[in-house]
Each structure stands twice: as C-alpha cells, then as structure tokens.
C-alpha cells in the first residue's frame, strides 16, 4: 500500500515539474492532466455515496444514509471550534489533542529510533544483541502496552504518548539500520581520506545517505501512530478524537461517529503526505545517485 501511493506521489511530482518547465500557467494539456487525476476519484465517491444512500435508506437499516448523517450531525460539522469546558468540545479540539499526542510521541520515537537504528546499523555487536529483542518487541500490539504504561505513569496523557512512541519506533529503527548498513563503501572511503570524525560522519554522510530509508520508516511510523492513538484514547478518555468516537457510540450518535471517521481518515492521509513530502524535499538528489 505504502509503495503504490509512493509511486503515485512520484508521478505527481514529475507532472508538476514538467508543467513548470512548459511556461504558460494554464494550458489545455495542464487542465486535462489535473482533470485526469481529480475526476475519477470524484466519480467513484459519488457512486459510493449513491450506493450507500440506497442501501441505508430503508427504516430497518442499522446505519444512517449520508443525507441523514449530515442532518443529524450538523451541529458537529458546523461548529468544530466550540468549547463548553471538560470534554464537551468541538471536533477541532479533539483532533488537536490527538495530533498533539501523536506529535510528541512520534517526535520522541524519531529521535530515539534514528539513534538506535544508527547504532544497530553501524555496529555488528549492537545488531546481534539488539535485533532479536527488537524483532520480538515490535510484534506486540500497541494497545497491549497501554495497561503497562498506565501502571508506570499513573496518568492517561503520558501513557498515550508512550503508546505512540512504542508503536512508531520499530519501523524507524529497522529502516534506519538498513539505510546505515547500505551506505556505499565509497562514501566511507571518502570520509576516511578527509578524516571526518564520528560526529561529522554522522551528520554529513550517514544521515543524508540513509535519509531515503529513514523517511520510509518515518512514513510507516506516522501511519501506525495515527492508528494507535484513536484506540488508545478510547481507553484513556479525556479530550481526543478516540474518546469523541467512543462517547458518540455510548450516546448512540452514529452520525457523529461517521463524521469523526471521515476526519480521522483525512488527517491520516495528510500526515502520510506531509512526511512523504518532507522526505522528497530532504532526499532530493540522494535517491538518484
């Protein structure tokens, strides 16, 4: 899945580049290109909504059709920014709280993951010692860590952040280690001849050389974080999109759940594209050696 979307991203980038070199801002060909990418998903979406509307419009249906979702959840859609204190807040505040947890847990995972990955990639002994342990730990489902972290931190907030951290760190470690192990011998020779010290070698050779691999890990990691946060928040409560969904279920507001899911999907998509775009920006040139 990740690779196919990466491919799509690649072609989109190329189209943009060629559009830039063509000169005039709006050309017939340019419009056609945009239309070719925008129209198919819109058509599919319309067909899907229609199907959904038809299937769920009978009074016995368990789920509301899209038209009823909009009318029932209009409060939630129209007022994302209201704040009545406690957990009675608009969707924006719930999403912001979730994103904040992800940002914190994910940032910690990036720092620790890149450092551990470098260690494992660079040192044969660190790999032999740590790799089997990582391989076991990474298969533990994110939520299985939650009770343990609640016991350790005795608070929901740090526990949720820890769950994000522990979920997203494994792909970062593993991909960084592969990237470091794949640094061409030539680059090592160059740095040996000009006598870079280990710190200079890390910043000037290792990180840029392994960047494409590292960003693959970051992209998988941020996706997993977003998957884990919703589940974790359902359990810890407080403000957050996971809590919002669980709360809506408890009050039988099915339409609100659907609206929240649309937001969760869109934000997950944006997070993925953000990390991928940042990766393209940073690794410009590295992938084409």
């Amino acid at each position: 899945m990740a690779s196919s979307s990466a491919l799509a991203l690649g072609t989109a980038g190329r189209d943009k580049a060629s559009a830039k070199s063509r000169g005039p801002f709006v050309t017939m060909k340019g419009i056609k290109g945009v239309a070719a990418r925008v129209i198919p998903p819109l058509v599919v979406l319309a067909v899907f909504m229609l199907l959904w509307e038809m299937l769920c419009s009978s009074p016995t249906a368990g789920l509301p059709p899209p038209s009823r979702v909009v009318t029932e959840a209009w409060e939630v859609i129209a007022h994302p920014f209201y704040d009545n204190g406690g957990t009675d807040k608009g969707l924006f505040w719930h999403l912001a709280a979730s994103l904040q947890r992800v940002a914190l847990g994910f940032s910690l995972a990036v720092i620790a993951g890149v450092m551990l990955g470098t260690l494992v990639g660079q040192s044969e002994w660190a790999m032999r010692g740590l790799d089997p342990i990582f391989q076991v730990l990474r298969t533990i489902p994110p939520l299985a860590w939650l009770p343990l972290s609640l016991a350790a931190f005795r608070d929901g907030q740090p526990s949720a952040i820890f769950v994000i951290f522990i979920t997203s760190i494994w792909p970062i470690i593993i991909n960084t280690a592969v990237g470091i192990r794949n640094i061409p011998q030539d680059y090592r020779n160059v740095s040996a001849v000009i006598r870079l010290n280990p710190i200079e070698f890390f910043w000037k050779i290792m990180l840029p050389s392994a960047a494409p691999y590292i960003f693959t890990g970051l992209r998988i990691g941020v996706g997993l974080s977003w998957l884990a946060i919703v589940a974790a928040e359902m359990l810890i409560g407080g403000v957050g999109i996971g809590f919002f969904i669980w709360d809506a279920w408890n009050s039988s507001h099915i339409s609100e759940i659907i609206v929240a899911l649309v937001y969760v999907g869109l934000i997950g998509f944006v997070l993925d594209r953000l990390v991928a775009g940042l990766g393209m920006l940073v690794t410009r040139g590295t992938s084409v050696a």
Binding site: D186, N189, V190, V193, I194, R195, P208, S209, V288
Partner: peptide, 15 residues
C-alpha cells in the same frame, strides 16, 4: 588527506 584518492566511480556525494 596527504594521500588524496581519485576514486574510479568519482564517489561524489549526490546530495
């Protein structure tokens, strides 16, 4: 650096 090497495949850093 007192024995600088010109490598066969140039070994320039692509970034």
């Amino acid at each position: 650096p007192d024995r600088a090497v010109v490598f066969q495949n140039h070994s320039l850093l692509p970034w």
